[in-house]
Simulated scan of single mutants.
Amino acid sequence: MTIISLLLLASLLPHLTFTAHVNVGIVNGKEATPHSRPYMVSVQVKERHTCGGFLISDRFVMTAAHCLNNSPVVTVVLGAHDLRKKSENSVRYKVDSYHQHPDYTEASFFNDILLLKLDRIVRLNDNIKWISIPAEGSDIKAGSVCSVAGWGRLETNGKKSDHLMETDVKVMNNTECERKWGKNYFSTSQMMCVHGNGGSCDGDSGGPLVCGDTAVGVTSFGDPARCNSPKQPEVYIKISAYITWIKKITGNII
Protein backbone atom coordinates (compact mmCIF):
# COMPACT_ATOMS: atom_id res chain seq x y z
CA MET A 1 0.00 0.00 0.00
CA THR A 2 2.97 2.27 -0.59
CA ILE A 3 1.21 4.50 -3.13
CA ILE A 4 -1.81 4.98 -0.91
CA SER A 5 0.39 5.75 2.10
CA LEU A 6 2.40 8.33 0.16
CA LEU A 7 -0.71 10.01 -1.20
CA LEU A 8 -2.26 10.23 2.24
CA LEU A 9 0.93 11.61 3.75
CA ALA A 10 1.17 14.15 0.95
CA SER A 11 -2.36 15.30 1.71
CA LEU A 12 -1.45 15.67 5.39
CA LEU A 13 1.74 17.68 4.90
CA PRO A 14 0.03 21.09 4.77
CA HIS A 15 -1.78 20.30 8.00
CA LEU A 16 0.83 18.58 10.18
CA THR A 17 4.14 19.83 11.48
CA PHE A 18 5.20 16.17 11.48
CA THR A 19 3.56 13.24 9.75
CA ALA A 20 2.46 9.82 10.88
CA HIS A 21 2.82 6.59 8.94
CA VAL A 22 -0.34 4.76 8.04
CA ASN A 23 -1.17 1.11 7.52
CA VAL A 24 0.52 0.32 10.69
CA GLY A 25 3.01 -5.50 9.67
CA ILE A 26 4.05 -6.86 12.83
CA VAL A 27 7.55 -6.13 14.17
CA ASN A 28 9.31 -8.55 16.56
CA GLY A 29 6.33 -10.87 16.43
CA LYS A 30 5.77 -14.53 15.65
CA GLU A 31 3.73 -16.43 13.12
CA ALA A 32 0.21 -16.97 14.40
CA THR A 33 -1.08 -20.51 14.70
CA PRO A 34 -2.98 -21.00 11.42
CA HIS A 35 -6.62 -19.93 11.78
CA SER A 36 -6.29 -19.16 15.48
CA ARG A 37 -7.68 -15.69 14.70
CA PRO A 38 -10.67 -16.61 12.50
CA TYR A 39 -11.96 -13.03 12.57
CA MET A 40 -8.93 -11.64 10.69
CA VAL A 41 -9.58 -10.17 7.24
CA SER A 42 -7.26 -9.19 4.40
CA VAL A 43 -8.59 -6.07 2.68
CA GLN A 44 -7.35 -6.15 -0.91
CA VAL A 45 -7.14 -3.95 -4.00
CA LYS A 46 -6.90 -5.87 -7.27
CA GLU A 47 -6.38 -9.03 -5.19
CA ARG A 48 -3.33 -7.62 -3.40
CA HIS A 49 -3.26 -7.09 0.37
CA THR A 50 -3.42 -3.43 1.36
CA CYS A 51 -4.94 -3.36 4.86
CA GLY A 52 -6.11 -5.54 7.67
CA GLY A 53 -9.64 -5.78 8.95
CA PHE A 54 -11.85 -7.98 11.11
CA LEU A 55 -15.27 -9.57 10.94
CA ILE A 56 -17.76 -8.17 13.48
CA SER A 57 -20.92 -9.93 12.24
CA ASP A 58 -21.98 -12.26 9.43
CA ARG A 59 -22.27 -9.25 7.09
CA PHE A 60 -19.86 -6.52 8.27
CA VAL A 61 -16.09 -6.03 8.34
CA MET A 62 -14.46 -3.23 10.36
CA THR A 63 -11.26 -1.55 9.16
CA ALA A 64 -9.62 1.90 9.00
CA ALA A 65 -11.23 4.71 7.00
CA HIS A 66 -7.93 5.74 5.41
CA CYS A 67 -7.73 2.35 3.70
CA LEU A 68 -10.17 3.76 1.12
CA ASN A 69 -8.36 7.04 0.47
CA ASN A 70 -7.04 5.93 -2.91
CA SER A 71 -8.98 2.67 -3.34
CA PRO A 72 -12.70 3.22 -3.86
CA VAL A 73 -13.19 -0.49 -4.60
CA VAL A 74 -11.84 -3.29 -2.40
CA THR A 75 -12.55 -6.96 -1.82
CA VAL A 76 -11.99 -8.87 1.40
CA VAL A 77 -10.55 -12.33 2.01
CA LEU A 78 -11.79 -14.29 5.03
CA GLY A 79 -10.38 -17.51 6.49
CA ALA A 80 -6.80 -16.92 5.29
CA HIS A 81 -3.46 -17.59 6.97
CA ASP A 82 -0.97 -17.77 4.09
CA LEU A 83 -2.13 -15.22 1.50
CA ARG A 84 -0.25 -17.07 -1.26
CA LYS A 85 -2.29 -20.24 -0.82
CA LYS A 86 -5.53 -20.62 -2.71
CA SER A 87 -6.10 -24.11 -1.28
CA GLU A 88 -6.73 -23.28 2.40
CA ASN A 89 -10.46 -22.67 1.86
CA SER A 90 -10.23 -18.91 2.25
CA VAL A 91 -13.15 -17.02 0.70
CA ARG A 92 -13.21 -13.71 -1.19
CA TYR A 93 -16.19 -11.40 -0.76
CA LYS A 94 -17.16 -8.28 -2.67
CA VAL A 95 -18.31 -5.18 -0.79
CA ASP A 96 -21.93 -4.13 -1.16
CA SER A 97 -21.55 -0.72 0.55
CA TYR A 98 -18.85 1.40 2.22
CA HIS A 99 -19.45 3.35 5.42
CA GLN A 100 -16.65 5.72 6.42
CA HIS A 101 -17.35 7.62 9.61
CA PRO A 102 -19.07 10.87 8.55
CA ASP A 103 -16.57 13.00 10.48
CA TYR A 104 -13.48 11.36 8.94
CA THR A 105 -11.43 13.46 6.53
CA GLU A 106 -8.14 12.77 4.78
CA ALA A 107 -6.68 15.82 6.56
CA SER A 108 -6.28 13.93 9.85
CA PHE A 109 -6.61 10.54 11.51
CA PHE A 110 -9.57 11.46 13.69
CA ASN A 111 -12.57 9.12 13.24
CA ASP A 112 -10.42 6.74 11.19
CA ILE A 113 -12.98 3.94 11.13
CA LEU A 114 -14.79 2.21 8.26
CA LEU A 115 -17.49 -0.45 8.00
CA LEU A 116 -17.73 -2.68 4.92
CA LYS A 117 -21.06 -4.33 4.27
CA LEU A 118 -20.38 -7.52 2.34
CA ASP A 119 -22.36 -8.55 -0.72
CA ARG A 120 -23.72 -11.66 0.96
CA ILE A 121 -24.07 -13.36 4.32
CA VAL A 122 -20.82 -14.93 5.50
CA ARG A 123 -20.84 -18.68 5.97
CA LEU A 124 -19.14 -19.22 9.30
CA ASN A 125 -16.89 -22.21 9.98
CA ASP A 126 -13.81 -23.11 12.06
CA ASN A 127 -11.68 -20.69 9.99
CA ILE A 128 -14.20 -17.85 9.70
CA LYS A 129 -15.84 -16.37 12.80
CA TRP A 130 -16.62 -12.88 13.99
CA ILE A 131 -15.16 -11.19 17.07
CA SER A 132 -17.02 -9.26 19.74
CA ILE A 133 -16.68 -5.50 20.11
CA PRO A 134 -16.86 -3.61 23.43
CA ALA A 135 -19.74 -1.94 25.20
CA GLU A 136 -20.28 1.74 24.57
CA GLY A 137 -17.97 3.95 26.62
CA SER A 138 -15.92 1.10 28.08
CA ASP A 139 -12.17 1.50 28.64
CA ILE A 140 -9.19 -0.82 28.91
CA LYS A 141 -6.89 -0.23 31.88
CA ALA A 142 -3.36 1.00 31.21
CA GLY A 143 -0.92 -1.88 31.48
CA SER A 144 -3.38 -4.46 30.16
CA VAL A 145 -1.74 -7.05 27.90
CA CYS A 146 -3.47 -7.26 24.53
CA SER A 147 -2.43 -8.34 21.03
CA VAL A 148 -2.22 -7.20 17.42
CA ALA A 149 -1.91 -9.23 14.22
CA GLY A 150 -1.49 -8.67 10.51
CA TRP A 151 0.19 -9.37 7.19
CA GLY A 152 2.22 -6.14 7.10
CA ARG A 153 5.93 -5.40 7.05
CA LEU A 154 8.20 -7.30 9.45
CA GLU A 155 10.45 -4.27 9.99
CA THR A 156 10.60 -0.62 8.99
CA ASN A 157 10.89 -0.49 5.17
CA GLY A 158 11.12 -4.31 5.18
CA LYS A 159 9.09 -6.91 3.33
CA LYS A 160 5.50 -7.83 4.04
CA SER A 161 4.61 -11.24 5.44
CA ASP A 162 2.49 -13.71 3.49
CA HIS A 163 1.72 -15.47 6.79
CA LEU A 164 -0.37 -13.90 9.54
CA MET A 165 1.92 -12.58 12.28
CA GLU A 166 1.05 -11.57 15.85
CA THR A 167 2.55 -10.02 18.96
CA ASP A 168 1.53 -8.98 22.47
CA VAL A 169 1.41 -5.31 23.46
CA LYS A 170 0.56 -3.30 26.56
CA VAL A 171 -2.03 -0.56 26.66
CA MET A 172 -0.48 2.84 27.41
CA ASN A 173 -1.93 5.48 29.70
CA ASN A 174 -3.95 7.82 27.48
CA THR A 175 -2.57 10.97 29.08
CA GLU A 176 0.97 9.76 28.34
CA CYS A 177 0.00 9.00 24.76
CA GLU A 178 -1.50 12.46 24.37
CA ARG A 179 1.74 13.96 25.72
CA LYS A 180 3.77 12.07 23.12
CA TRP A 181 1.54 12.92 20.15
CA GLY A 182 -0.08 16.21 21.16
CA LYS A 183 -3.75 17.19 21.25
CA ASN A 184 -3.77 18.13 17.56
CA TYR A 185 -3.16 14.51 16.59
CA PHE A 186 -4.43 12.43 19.50
CA SER A 187 -7.86 12.36 21.11
CA THR A 188 -8.10 10.73 24.55
CA SER A 189 -11.82 10.07 24.01
CA GLN A 190 -11.51 8.54 20.52
CA MET A 191 -8.07 6.90 20.50
CA MET A 192 -5.75 4.65 22.50
CA CYS A 193 -2.17 3.50 22.05
CA VAL A 194 0.12 0.65 23.04
CA HIS A 195 3.80 -0.14 23.56
CA GLY A 196 5.92 -3.27 23.76
CA ASN A 197 8.81 -5.22 22.26
CA GLY A 198 6.72 -5.79 19.15
CA GLY A 199 4.08 -3.82 17.35
CA SER A 200 2.41 -2.83 14.12
CA CYS A 201 4.05 -1.67 10.90
CA ASP A 202 3.09 -0.70 7.33
CA GLY A 203 0.39 -3.00 5.95
CA ASP A 204 -1.59 -3.59 9.15
CA SER A 205 -3.92 -0.61 9.21
CA GLY A 206 -7.48 -1.59 9.95
CA GLY A 207 -6.53 -4.69 11.92
CA PRO A 208 -7.83 -5.15 15.46
CA LEU A 209 -6.28 -4.48 18.83
CA VAL A 210 -7.60 -7.48 20.77
CA CYS A 211 -7.92 -7.61 24.55
CA GLY A 212 -9.18 -10.96 25.82
CA ASP A 213 -11.76 -12.07 23.27
CA THR A 214 -12.83 -8.55 22.27
CA ALA A 215 -11.63 -6.20 19.52
CA VAL A 216 -11.21 -2.86 21.31
CA GLY A 217 -9.25 -0.83 18.75
CA VAL A 218 -8.66 -0.32 15.01
CA THR A 219 -5.02 0.06 13.90
CA SER A 220 -4.66 3.63 12.62
CA PHE A 221 -1.24 5.37 12.58
CA GLY A 222 2.24 5.67 14.09
CA ASP A 223 5.74 7.15 13.80
CA PRO A 224 6.56 7.91 10.13
CA ALA A 225 10.23 6.98 10.52
CA ARG A 226 10.16 3.82 12.61
CA CYS A 227 7.69 1.01 13.21
CA ASN A 228 7.10 0.29 16.90
CA SER A 229 8.78 3.54 17.88
CA PRO A 230 9.28 4.23 21.60
CA LYS A 231 8.91 7.96 20.95
CA GLN A 232 5.67 7.92 18.94
CA PRO A 233 3.59 4.88 19.92
CA GLU A 234 1.14 3.22 17.54
CA VAL A 235 -2.36 4.69 17.77
CA TYR A 236 -5.68 2.84 17.56
CA ILE A 237 -9.21 4.11 17.14
CA LYS A 238 -11.17 3.29 20.31
CA ILE A 239 -14.14 1.21 19.16
CA SER A 240 -16.17 1.83 22.34
CA ALA A 241 -16.46 5.51 21.36
CA TYR A 242 -18.31 4.61 18.15
CA ILE A 243 -20.88 2.02 19.22
CA THR A 244 -23.92 4.23 18.53
CA TRP A 245 -22.69 4.92 14.97
CA ILE A 246 -21.78 1.25 14.42
CA LYS A 247 -25.25 0.06 15.48
CA LYS A 248 -26.88 2.68 13.25
CA ILE A 249 -25.00 1.30 10.22
CA THR A 250 -25.35 -2.38 11.06
CA GLY A 251 -29.00 -2.17 12.13
CA ASN A 252 -28.32 -2.98 15.77
CA ILE A 253 -27.22 -6.52 14.96
CA ILE A 254 -23.86 -6.22 16.77
Rank of each mutant, 00 (worst) to 15 (best):
M1H: 04
I3R: 07
S5D: 15
L7M: 14
L7Q: 13
L8E: 11
L8Y: 07
P14G: 04
F18C: 11
A20T: 12
V22Y: 09
N23I: 01
G25L: 09
V27F: 07
V27A: 13
S36N: 00
R37P: 05
V41S: 10
V41L: 00
V43K: 05
V45F: 10
K46W: 03
K46Y: 00
K46H: 05
H49Q: 12
H49Y: 04
F54E: 15
F54H: 15
F60A: 13
V61T: 09
V61L: 09
T63H: 08
H66R: 08
H66I: 05
C67T: 06
C67S: 06
V73C: 07
V74Q: 03
T75F: 05
L78K: 02
L78H: 00
L78A: 00
G79C: 11
A80C: 01
D82M: 02
L83F: 01
R84P: 03
K85R: 04
E88T: 02
R92P: 01
K94D: 08
S97G: 08
Y98T: 11
D103R: 13
D103M: 10
Y104M: 00
T105A: 00
T105Y: 00
E106T: 10
S108N: 12
N111G: 01
L114Y: 03
L115H: 03
L116R: 06
L116G: 03
K117I: 06
D119Q: 08
R120S: 11
I121M: 10
I121E: 09
N125G: 14
I131S: 12
A135G: 15
E136K: 15
S138E: 15
S144V: 04
V148T: 03
V148D: 01
G150S: 02
R153E: 10
L154G: 02
N157R: 13
G158Q: 05
D162Y: 05
D162P: 03
L164H: 04
L164E: 03
L164R: 03
M165N: 10
E166W: 11
E166L: 11
E166P: 10
K170P: 00
N174C: 05
T175R: 12
C177Q: 07
Y185Q: 08
F186Q: 05
F186G: 09
S187F: 05
T188L: 09
T188D: 10
H195E: 13
H195F: 08
G198H: 12
G199R: 13
G199D: 11
C201K: 14
G203F: 10
G207I: 00
L209G: 12
V210T: 14
V210C: 09
C211P: 02
G212T: 06
D213A: 15
G217H: 00
G217I: 12
G222F: 12
D223W: 10
P224Y: 14
P224W: 01
P224E: 15
N228T: 00
S229Q: 14
S229Y: 08
K231Y: 11
Q232W: 12
P233H: 11
Y236F: 11
Y236S: 01
Y236I: 03
K238N: 06
I239Q: 01
T244P: 14
W245D: 13
K248L: 15
I249E: 02
I254E: 02
